[in-house]
């Protein structure tokens, strides 16, 4: 029947749509690469031209806290991918546990970043340091990329909780886990950005 076939082909199949969604998320990440690169470059320019200011800040801050935080985020990425692995094997509860852990680690990361910001603020590193300050020009170039990244982590935590909620509702299965996979793409991307930011801002 002509009508029946027409209805059968009204849209992409679930597999095709899953591919579409993944491609869409990759393209979104492509645009994120560019916008992060603007902030990263601006910090790199400052680091190249004003090394003394940067070292001064590092003496104030140390790297213990941020190193711990980096491990939190790395672990969260691992938890994320273990969650995906769980649902690919059809394990609903394991999925919820792993993604829940991801959200928890992400929240801890943001919390510790807040602690770090507070320390920096006490030391006098502000977003609007003027030429008179020893930290002149550092604050805005530091806070912008890290806060932008932090905002991505916060959104990621919310997204993770949403994935947990949907998992609880039984929306994912061995055949249908693109929702987990796309959240994973986002979360790992945020992790990758942190890997670069950590090295550039705190180590180099």
């Amino acid at each position: 029947m002509a009508e029946a076939t027409a209805h059968a082909h009204h849209g992409p199949s679930p597999q095709e749509q899953a591919e579409n969604i993944k491609f869409g998320v990759w393209l979104y990440l492509a645009s994120e690469v560019i916008i992060f690169s603007v902030f990263i470059t601006i910090y790199a320019m400052f680091r190249a031209q004003n090394p003394d200011t940067v070292f001064h800040v590092r003496e104030e801050l140390g790297i213990a806290l941020v190193s711990f935080n980096t491990f939190l985020l790395l672990t969260s990425s691992w938890a994320m991918v273990m969650g995906l692995r769980a649902i690919q094997a059809g394990k609903q509860r394991a999925l919820m546990a792993w993604i829940g852990l991801t959200a928890l680690l992400g929240t801890a990361f943001v919390g510790l970043q807040y602690v770090e910001y507070t320390e920096l603020a006490h030391a006098g590193v502000a977003i609007n340091n003027t030429n008179a300050s020893v930290f002149a020009g550092f604050g805005m170039r530091f806070y912008t990329p890290t806060a932008f990244h932090g905002a991505h982590v916060i959104i990621g935590v919310i997204w993770a909780l949403w994935v947990v909620w949907r998992a609880w509702k039984g929306r994912y299965s061995t055949e249908n886990y693109v929702g987990v996979e796309t959240f994973g793409l986002y979360w790992h991307f945020v992790d990758v950005v942190w890997i670069l930011l950590f090295t550039l801002i705190y180590l180099v």
């Binding site: 690469v33 560019i34 690169s37 991918v81």
Partner: peptide
């Protein structure tokens, strides 16, 4: 992370390009 956690190793080639091209421009 990109190759193993984001599955670029096994996924469609075009995803790799989607990441590489903006990386090159940036």
């Amino acid at each position: 992370v990109v190759i193993y956690y984001m599955h670029l190793k096994d996924d469609r080639r075009i995803f790799a390009w989607t990441l590489l091209v903006p990386l090159i421009f940036a």
